[in-house]
Design a protein around this nucleic acid. Sequence first.
DNA 1: ACCTGAACACCGTTCAAGT
DNA 2: ACCTGAACACCGTTCAAGT
Lengths: 202, 202
Amino acid sequence: MARRSDHSRDEIKEMAIAAAEKIVTEQGYAGLSARKVAAEIGYTVGTLYLVFENLNDLVLQVNGITLDALYDEMQQTSEGCKDPTSCILALGRAYIQYAVNHKNRWGMIYEHLLPEGQQIPKWYSDKVARNLSLVEMALEKVPVRCPQKEIMVAARSLWGGVHGICILAMTNKLDITGIDSVQALANTLINHFMSGFMKQHT
Amino acid sequence: MARRSDHSRDEIKEMAIAAAEKIVTEQGYAGLSARKVAAEIGYTVGTLYLVFENLNDLVLQVNGITLDALYDEMQQTSEGCKDPTSCILALGRAYIQYAVNHKNRWGMIYEHLLPEGQQIPKWYSDKVARNLSLVEMALEKVPVRCPQKEIMVAARSLWGGVHGICILAMTNKLDITGIDSVQALANTLINHFMSGFMKQHT
DNA sequence: ACCTGAACACCGTTCAAGT
DNA sequence: ACCTGAACACCGTTCAAGT
């Protein structure tokens, strides 16, 4: 049992986040609870509420870290590719690969819902926007002038699409089997979308 | 308090499903519980377990009804439209409209997750397949021969896409506002996809 | 035979009380 | 000042006991 002043507020926070990451990775979002996190770090439940607003707060912190890891994977993949379509294909491949390799971590990002009416904090939407910007940057490589507004709409539209395919696949709702089929579906969506997008902008 | 033999097994089942529909509509999936359903129909919790396997079972029944209602809306909308793209646009509009009008009912379809490793029952995947078939039928109107396999891939790819946009929009994760923007994103996805799809098949 | 209701093993969150 | 641990108001699920 950890005793008082063994750790600073910030240390407890870090320990709790690390513990939550571990529990989610092993047992999924459904397996995560405040009591389990507390037990894992050797404090009692009450202590968590000195350091986090509530469990939502802790979950958002973990999801933020996951978004960063996903960004790194995607960023690395898209480096150095020249034409927009192959860039987007690479981003899609990296996204799905991450979802498959870190099923429970990725899953918590979309399984977690804020209570009705509660706003997503700005630091979190900023992370989402940063990930989307990779798609926007790839779309901007299309060799025609295209208003920024349209790039943003296209990026959200396309990325929502890849995300949706990934969700349906991960939750077994598409009668498809194996990662190759998911990739194939995403590639189909991306290829057709890009074909139409580039045709409109030439 | 309902007394024994007041209602048959089937009557209790129907009452429970109706009660669950009501609770979900008003309070969302998070607000649904076996105890609330039991209270609503005037029986005790234990009774529900004589009639349903567990709460998952009850949720699946309700979701099945929702899928049917969604099918009806989409089916009606797509009737009589001739060219494939306008068909798909109409289906997308109906889908998003349904999601917006019945937020909590639609939400439960994707918020509900079966326990790890549990298979979706066949009668449920059949309903999902029936809804997808509307998209497939629209794609088949493309005036070229196209293998059935490709139609199926395209339908799943496109519909996963529309679904993803809808989810991100409903959970406020796309920095967009209002139903018009959601429709606009879906239309963008559909138009570009169809443009690419038709180009490949001519 | 049909249904109850109490029990079991869990939740998130709060806060008086201890050291 | 820091943390505890018991309490509150909930969960899903089971099953001996009542009528």
